[in-house]
């Protein structure tokens, strides 16, 4: 989540007319374990599918402004397992989600109480691969209270936890998040600590947690820094994501970083772990990820074409030529 609202500076400078070339990694499959598709367009879905992203996880988060009633939460969670899942399938991308009360809105205690009551109706749904994203923002007492309650819920349900670590006072916030999880008796291998940086990664790995890195311009990790992290720590229990949302962010962060890693001499096997396999290993502990579905979701639309015409089942999106000035 960003951002600085300096549009004059942003719009200054020359417009970019070059195109992105990802041929170096063509044929590779990627898994983005943190991306907020609700905030993205169909162009992004198309670009992601073209770049090799076969599946993704959409964590429940803050929508940019606070919700004022429980029904808004119900509708949001329903959209993650309904409409957004379908939208994604139209581009052949398998959509999973994590469900939880985000740290910012945990501070509205009256509403947070109601959210805790409805969470059990959603966490056992098909394709819900964890409780997330939860944790600290301001590190208030209310945030801690609902973080703890949701850790208990995850333990009871046997689901992985996706932890959002704070932007401000990150190092202490990350340590505190891990301490509390251990205190509640959760196994570090069930916990994905997200938004790491050079300052937090060592302790997260040393204590046995999964370390996720968000490649996000300006406010989180740049991918050149990411390459150095992988070189230093190796690929074990490390995964990257885009956390693309309504801010200036990049849903192609994973394939772009894969290109950079390849150019930097990191082995293909290690790239696969960091951009695909580790995320699956971590979140498949929910029992909700079957890799065959990544292929099936593409096949279904193709094989279910009706014999006599080109009608696609469920309405897969036809491709449009974005560079044509003709819109028909």
């Amino acid at each position: 989540m960003c951002c600085n609202e300096n549009f004059e500076e942003r719009n200054k400078g020359e417009k970019i007319t070059t195109t992105l070339d990802l041929t170096e990694i063509s044929g590779m499959n990627f898994f983005d374990p943190h991306v907020h598709m609700t905030s993205r367009t169909t162009d992004d879905y198309q670009a992601m599918a073209d770049a090799g992203i076969v599946a993704l996880i959409e964590p429940a988060f803050w929508l940019g402004q606070p919700r004022t009633g429980i029904d808004s939460f119900i509708d949001y969670y329903s959209s993650l397992i309904g409409w957004e899942r379908f939208r994604s399938s139209q581009f052949g991308i398998k959509h999973y989600c994590t469900i939880g009360l985000n740290s910012r809105e945990a501070n509205n205690e009256k509403l947070a109480e109601q959210v805790m009551e409805i969470l059990p109706s959603f966490i056992f749904k098909e394709g819900v691969v964890g409780i997330g994203e939860i944790g600290f923002d301001d590190q208030t007492a209310a945030e801690e209270k609902y973080y703890r309650l949701q850790l208990e819920l995850a333990k009871e349900a046997g689901l992985p936890v996706q932890i959002h670590t704070p932007h401000r006072d990150k190092k202490k916030g990350t340590q505190r998040s891990m301490d509390i999880a251990i205190e509640h008796g959760l196994d570090p291998k069930m916990i994905i600590v997200d938004h790491n940086n050079e300052e937090t990664v060592k302790e997260v790995l040393d204590r046995g947690f999964w370390a996720a890195f968000t490649i996000y311009p300006f406010t989180k990790m740049g991918n050149e820094r990411m390459v150095e992290v992988v070189k230093q720590y190796g690929p074990e229990r490390i995964m990257i994501n885009s956390a693309a949302d309504w801010g200036i962010s990049d849903p192609l962060a994973i394939p772009k970083t894969a290109v950079l890693m390849k150019r930097s001499g990191i082995s293909l096997a290690d790239i696969e772990l960091v951009t695909y396999r580790n995320a699956i290993s971590a979140f498949a502990q929910s029992g909700q990820i079957d890799e065959h579905d990544f292929i099936k979701i593409k096949d279904i639309d193709q094989s279910q074409k009706f014999a006599s015409n080109s009608i696609l089942r469920g309405g897969q999106q036809p491709r449009i030529d974005k560079n044509s000035i003709i819109i028909s």
Partner: peptide, 9 residues
């Protein structure tokens, strides 16, 4: 119906 995911719907 109120909390149905896609396949449940």
């Amino acid at each position: 119906f109120a909390t149905a995911e896609m396949n449940e719907q």
